[in-house]
Amino acid sequence: MSKLKAVFFDLDDTLYTSFQAGDRYAYECMEKWAQETFGEAGHGFDAAFLTARKQLAAEQPDMPPIHDRVLFAQRALENMGLNAVPHARKAAAVYWDAVFAKMTVRPGAPEFMDELHAHGIRIAVVTNMLADIQMEKLMRLGLSERIDYLVTSEEAGIDKPHRTIFDLAMRKCGVQPDEALMVGDNFTHDVCGAHEAGISGIWLNWTHKERPESEVSCFEAHDFLEAADHIRTLF
């Protein structure tokens, strides 16, 4: 590749861990909130929320609304015969507060971002999610001042692995595909999606998953520090 000018990082499960732990905790918190708010009528809200989430994902595959917890809550409450308008946003707030509470920034990530900037390398977070939620995460993780650009699927209009989001990241950073590198935990979304845009990838396989059958080549790291060490060889 040409001289490295930009590194694109996924956010969830790449710059912090673990989204899954926060998601599980969020369901527990929402069920408690629903029963406190609606009494017996709120029982089973966690299951209704999950069902709504799956329904929206099936109805609008790869589209940003499938990440909107307010929409999940609205659909869930309506399916339960409850008035969604006064309560859906609160349910979503309960969900996200629980997720935020479980976030832990990857060891070495803040320092490595500072190191990248010291070498004149731009940083973009390229993520499937709504902009305001990802901004809040970056603020809470202490990373908001360490990145140059946030690129969300909400802004791009479609989720990774569609190349549109990677093209937008390159335009923001003012780089060509061979001047950029993508780092992410999802082989399909991050590595293969970046590859389709001509960008090399690093698969942060911190859960030690079996490598998918693919002709796409990439460096495989098992923790953030290993990924950082590899990127240093490209300075």
Results as ranks from 00 to 15, higher is better:
108 G>W: 09
70 V>S: 12
101 A>M: 07
116 L>V: 12
64 P>E: 07
102 K>D: 12
83 N>S: 15
92 A>D: 06
81 G>Y: 01
77 L>F: 04
111 E>D: 14
103 M>C: 05
93 A>Y: 01
103 M>V: 04
70 V>Y: 04
109 A>C: 08
77 L>C: 07
113 M>D: 03
81 G>R: 10
110 P>H: 13
93 A>P: 03
98 A>Q: 01
62 D>E: 06
91 A>Q: 06
71 L>G: 12
97 D>W: 02
85 V>W: 10
84 A>Y: 11
72 F>D: 02
103 M>T: 11
107 P>T: 01
67 H>W: 14
94 V>N: 11
63 M>S: 03
62 D>A: 07
99 V>K: 14
69 R>L: 03
92 A>K: 04
71 L>E: 14
92 A>F: 00
79 N>D: 15
86 P>G: 08
111 E>P: 15
77 L>V: 01
108 G>H: 13
84 A>H: 12
116 L>I: 15
110 P>Q: 13
83 N>T: 09
63 M>G: 01
75 R>Y: 04
82 L>M: 13
107 P>L: 01
79 N>W: 07
67 H>R: 07
66 I>K: 03
73 A>K: 01
85 V>E: 14
106 R>T: 12
66 I>R: 07
76 A>G: 10
82 L>E: 10
99 V>A: 05
82 L>K: 13
113 M>R: 01
101 A>Q: 14
80 M>Y: 11
84 A>L: 05
102 K>I: 02
63 M>N: 00
116 L>H: 03
78 E>I: 02
81 G>F: 00
102 K>L: 13
67 H>N: 11
113 M>N: 00
72 F>G: 00
85 V>S: 11
87 H>M: 12
82 L>S: 14
70 V>F: 05
81 G>L: 07
96 W>I: 01
65 P>A: 10
100 F>Q: 13
82 L>A: 15
82 L>F: 09
101 A>S: 15
66 I>T: 06
94 V>S: 11
97 D>M: 09
100 F>H: 15
103 M>A: 06
102 K>V: 04
107 P>N: 03
114 D>P: 02
90 K>W: 14
110 P>T: 06
113 M>L: 14
80 M>D: 09
115 E>C: 08
70 V>Q: 05
106 R>W: 04
63 M>D: 00
115 E>M: 09
70 V>D: 08
102 K>Y: 14
